[in-house]
Amino acid sequence: MLDVSQLNAWYGESHILHGVDFNVQQGEVVTLLGRNGAGKTTTLKSIMGLVGKRQGHIKLNGREIVGLRSDNIAKAGIAICPEERGIFASLNVTENLMLPRVVAPGGLDLAEIYTLFPNLKERANSQGTKLSGGEQQMLAIARILRTGAKLLLLDEPTEGLAPVIVQQIGRTIREIKARGFTVLLVEQNFRFAATVADRHYVMEHGRVIDMIQNAELAANMGKLHDYLGV
């Protein structure tokens, strides 16, 4: 579904990605693991067109999207849940939920979203940033499920959240996978990643350096500890 090859990206003058290669198959949950500064977030942002300069190839179902503007990348069927969550303070929960444009049929409707995230229904008229951290994260995920985009980019959805919320996010990711969505997940927490993902790519210094099947994770623990320094 997504085929990234020889991807280079820059923030201003600093060269962050140095030829990233990986792919994501339809219906998979794939994680990018790696230490801080390895280029995981930049990879997601590059796919979404949120990085100033990028070169190489990003193919979505065979179509080259590396040169597109971010609104057109969204229309091609990719949606992002950014690391800082990006909940808008001047919008209430419903407005935040309805903001991303519907780009294709097959997204969840509002009733399905409220079934999946009952908290959001209760707080529909609250200001977006008045929600708890966990609720904001739910909102940030929920609003991209509406759009009909089939490839979802989730940037550290568990960061800074209580274990019970992390479990809920894990259930949500398995649920959306069951509904046929494809997920590319950036994670620091590989124990969480192991509960949801099919495969893991390990990044270091702006490159992908290894790929581990989730089923082989236990056998590769030693290697992973070296990579992540945990």
Partner: peptide, 18 residues
């Protein structure tokens, strides 16, 4: 709402297809 959101964070609003 789109206008208010774009006032806050235009790049993200654009990444949402606007």
């Amino acid at each position: 709402a789109t206008l208010r959101a774009a006032t806050e964070n235009a790049p993200l609003v654009q990444a949402f297809g606007v």
